[in-house]
Design a protein around this nucleic acid. Structure first.
Length: 938
DNA sequence: GCGGACTGCTTACCT
DNA sequence: ACAGGTAAGCAGTCCGCG
């Protein structure tokens, strides 16, 4: 590997430059006043005031002809051995066109539905389909004459009296349609106002007193009206999209009927209809990850993508078909770097002496992949490339992206920005169990892949070319791996989320879980001919809550937390109600139309405990059906299939992803009804869920007491039982099943639990010595690293304890350990990084107006130094002596650290734990103070 | 003018 | 913009105090 660069790269660069001269001559035509040899040195100085002239596009054409179409001529390949690999790659690439508008999907075209969008030029909805046989994307342009519309209750003749509507130039026509009004449980005739373009809906919806379904994106409406499911296979047939492979076999249908036996027929019918979503194998389009690096003279500041003032110095690509390429810009005064910097084998490096050529090559690659991955491409890489290209005179139609309202979309393929995807809170918490806490490539890759970014001393602008290559390619590889690890887990998850939500891929990867649930519910409303209620009418009819939240500013009361004791308890069984809230929604038939119903057809009404809402049980509520279906599918079918050893491993992995996708949905299903931003916001629904939850756990605690079980603690849906009798436990489970129709499962068994006496705060140790630490200060991000380290060492001591007797010994160990740490701290045996407190900035600096927390103080000091600080940034600071009290790590010295403050922090970290083992800080540290005093004065 | 009691703001956690 | 509940640290304020 080391012999790759046995020549000095610098020498090589000279060669490249001259060989490029030939190839570039045509491309330089437009800038004839500047010879290529000077353009290299001008690269940095000249770009910021580059003016786009008319002759440039001719130059681009020429460059395309001479340079781009024959990339091997004048190609700088940095080593001989990789040339063989590289030429194979490039051979493949060199036949690819620069601009790649997808071909039209005509009659008979078959492919997976990836994306719908509005094609403004043609004025129709367009659908991107991925054909897995050719590996190409085709676009189906709607031929049914589908137009944008919204609904109102004004009859057509009365509508004629509103000229602003019917005389509007975008107005097309009206139709009368019949819908079912779930909220009022009656048929309703509404007027459909059909218009020419989507923007007209926005202009006209306020011109009528009441409008429905006027806030749905045109290309989403298309999906709902045609009953499409993104992620499934379709064929263009008789000018329409026809589902392929959506049939459910007789055998499968019988199986589903058995699983859902006893349910209402409408639920069984939906269950059968959904089956292909979980069973059809996912498409596997080729994926390309792209990452760019930009020169900037300002350290600690992210280059401004809208200005794009400085050159793109490197672009790295990694694809799942094995491509590893870095395009790098030769810059005057920047050395090649040492061979031993260790660029991995198989990475093909191309050195460009012209930034424009580099960008054009980049575009050509991007334009040829059906899926392009970035990390923050929406807000940085793609806008930068876009604006930089324009600045360098590259015409728009050569650029493979088009900016949409909220993100960067691709002309040919699909752009997935993984920063957006991993920032989705439901993904972070439900799919990955909060494994990562910050939304940076490094944090996410470390947590999920166990791999890191390449560490660099200062900024990318200061790196040698080889260091830059190494850094850049790692980012691209990590980005790719984030979708491919664990048998393409993330890609499959995205496909499944698209199928369940019915949102296109570019939409589902950029929206929060509330948008997914909204979309799924809209789709089902449309399918069943229900009018989608407006937010206002739901609030008017269902706005009232009956409980008061314990937390100021919240809308209604939530879960209960039992008061835990303090102390150590051996053999603790933790029971929990399986999917408590979703199960409640299903069992109690909770839905916006069933809670406090306007009309309950069979008058079968039950009352919610505590809050007294009335629930109509006569017909299955819509949201109860959907949530219940996902829950049952997950529990009764896919959790089992995921563990079925008789299935091949990759099939099991798929089913595991299926159940994970369902988990994300059902976990969020309660919360959205309590979120005022949700279009189907129904506070009494959310309030009923938590009230029933409280009722259920309280009754279960009562029963447990009757059975002689000792309940130590419980939070929302869990009960900690001390050394229970097996039979009594089973009896309790039976009681819960019979009385509430819920599953009370044994979640875990702890060898022992140490409770501090505080809620949401305990350590549970398993038989094998591993431990769960919950809520303790030692676990929090804003606790200095040295304390976390020392704490985890104490945890190791603790995990080894097997009996109450052994605790005595461990207590002594712990006491000694703490004393050592204490004296070490007094003598400042730690460095600044170990002492740093990390805290996130949740708002822009100037939004902290009420007071100035310490991390904001530190951040303001950084800002004064010219370092950019943005919301989401985690500030590392240390506590120091002096007026401000804090300093960012970068600016602090060890000598100014305020040791007393750190002793306080140490005390609070360990007191929580000492409380559990019945020790006090003073008894542990008291004598240490004396010892330290004596030692210092001896 | 200072310190303790208190409230409110902010963050990070748990379910 | 999925929810509420708990804990901690600190900033800022009020009040008492001859």
């Amino acid at each position: 590997m080391q012999r790759y660069f046995d020549e000095s790269l610098r020498e090589l660069l000279t060669e490249i430059r001259s060989s490029r001269n030939e190839a570039n001559r045509a491309g330089e035509g437009a800038r004839s006043e500047k010879r290529l040899s000077t353009s290299v040195s001008d690269n940095i100085a000249d770009v910021s005031n580059n003016v786009v002239s008319g002759s440039v596009s001719a130059a681009v054409e020429a460059a395309e002809r001479d340079l781009i179409r024959k990339p091997l001529s004048g190609q700088a390949v940095a080593n001989v051995e990789s040339l063989i690999h590289a030429s194979k790659v490039l051979e493949k690439l060199s036949i690819l066109p620069l601009v790649n508008e997808p071909m039209e999907a005509r009659e008979g075209f078959e492919g997976f539905l990836l994306q719908t969008y509005y094609d403004g030029d043609r004025g129709v909805v367009a659908v991107k389909l991925y054909d897995d046989r050719s590996g190409r994307i085709g676009v189906y342009f709607d031929t049914t004459g589908y137009k944008p519309y919204f609904l109102t209750d004004i009859p057509p003749d009365k509508l004629q009296e509103i000229p602003q509507v019917v005389k509007h130039k975008g107005f097309d026509h009206v139709e009368v349609v019949e819908k079912f009004d779930l909220l009022r449980w009656q048929k309703k005739r509404v007027t459909k106002i059909v218009v020419k373009t989507p923007d007209v809906v926005k202009q006209l919806r306020d011109k009528v007193p009441r409008a429905w379904e006027a806030n749905i994106k045109f290309h989403h409406n298309y999906i709902y009206d045609f009953g499409l499911t993104p992620g499934l296979r379709y064929r263009v047939s008789s000018g329409r999209l026809e589902l392929v492979g959506g049939d459910v076999s007789e055998e499968a249908e019988q199986f589903i009927r058995k699983v859902f036996s006893g349910e209402d027929e409408s639920i069984v019918e939906t269950a059968i209809r959904w089956f292909p979503l979980f069973e059809q194998p996912p498409p596997k389009p080729r994926r390309l990850a792209v990452d760019i690096e930009v020169y900037t003279p300002f350290k600690g500041r992210v280059p401004d993508a809208s200005a794009a003032s400085y050159p793109i110095i490197s672009v790295a690509f990694a694809s799942d078909d094995g491509l590893r390429v870095v395009f790098i810009l030769a810059r005057p005064g920047v050395v090649g770097g040492e061979p031993r910097e260790g660029v991995k084998e198989g990475v093909h490096i191309e050195i460009f002496d012209d930034e424009r050529a580099l960008i054009l090559e980049t575009f050509r690659l991007i334009a040829n992949y059906p899926i392009v991955l970035t990390f923050n491409g929406d807000n940085f890489d793609f806008p930068y490339l876009y604006n930089r290209a324009l600045k360098l005179g590259i015409p728009k139609d050569v650029i493979p992206f088009k900016p949409t309202r909220s993100y960067m979309s691709l002309k040919y393929g699909i752009h997935i920005d993984l920063y957006q995807f991993f920032s989705i809170k439901a993904i972070q918490s439900y799919a990955f169990g909060n494994a990562y806490k910050e939304f940076t490539l490094d944090a996410i890759a470390s947590a999920l892949l166990g791999e890191h970014k390449v560490e660099i001393e200062s900024t990318v602008s200061d790196l040698s070319l080889l260091e830059l290559v190494r850094y850049n390619i790692r980012d691209a590889e990590l980005t790719l791996k984030l979708t491919s690890f664990n048998r393409d887990l993330v890609w499959k998850l995205i496909v499944l989320l698209a199928r369940i939500s019915r949102l296109p891929i570019e939409d589902v990867t950029r929206s929060q879980v509330s948008a997914w649930i909204k979309s799924l519910l809209y789709w089902e409303h449309r399918r069943r001919g229900y009018l989608i209620p407006s937010r206002d009418e739901i609030i008017k009819l269902k706005g009232e809550v009956k409980s008061e939240a314990l937390i100021k500013g919240k809308k209604y009361q939530g879960a209960i937390v039992l008061d835990p004791p303090s102390g150590v308890f051996f053999r603790v069984v933790v029971l929990d109600f399986a999917s408590l809230y979703p199960s409640i929604i299903k069992k109690w038939n909770l839905s916006y139309e069933t809670v406090n119903p306007v009309y309950c057809p069979g008058s079968k009404i039950v009352e919610v405990p505590d809050v007294g809402h009335k629930v109509c049980m006569s017909n299955p509520g819509l949201t109860a059906q959907i949530v219940g279906l996902l829950r049952d599918y997950r529990v009764k079918i896919y959790k089992k299939k995921a563990k079925d050893k008789s299935l091949p491993e990759d099939v099991r992995a798929w089913y595991d992803t299926v159940q994970a996708a369902m988990k994300v949905y059902i976990n969020a299903s309660y919360g959205v009804f309590g979120a005022s931003s949700f279009p189907l916001y129904a506070p009494p629904v959310a309030e009923s869920v938590t009230a029933i939850g409280r009722y259920t756990i309280k009754e279960t605690v009562k029963k447990a007491a009757e059975l002689g079980l000792r309940v130590l603690y419980g939070d929302t849906d869990s009960l900690f039982i001390w050394n229970p009798d097996e039979e009594k436990l089973e009896e309790l489970q039976k009681y819960v099943e019979e009385n509430f129709g819920l599953d009370l499962e044994v979640d875990k068994v702890y060898k022992f639990v140490t409770f501090s006496g505080l809620k949401k705060n305990y350590i549970g140790a398993y038989e094998d010595g591993s431990v769960d630490v919950k809520g303790m200060v030692a676990k929090k991000r804003n606790t200095p690293e040295f304390l976390k380290k020392e704490f985890s060492e104490i945890l190791n001591l603790l995990g080894s304890v097997n009996s109450p007797e052994e605790f005595v010994k461990v207590r002594n160990h712990i006491r000694e350990k703490l004393r050592t740490v204490y004296t070490g701290l007094r003598e400042l045996d730690y460095n600044l990084d170990e002492l740093a407190i990390r805290m996130a900035l949740n708002k822009p600096l100037d939004a902290y107006t009420k007071n100035t927390p310490q991390h904001v103080k530190a951040a303001r000091q950084l800002a004064r130094m010219g370092v950019q600080v943005l919301p989401g940034d985690v500030i590392s600071f240390v506590k120091v002596k002096g007026k401000e009290g804090v300093k960012p790590v970068q600016l602090a010295r060890l000598a100014e650290v305020d040791v007393d403050k750190y002793v306080e922090t140490m005390k609070s970290v360990f007191e929580q734990f000492l409380a559990a083992i019945n020790m006090s800080w003073d008894e542990v540290i008291g004598s240490s103070r004396l010892e330290l005093f004596l030692r210092k004065n001896s």
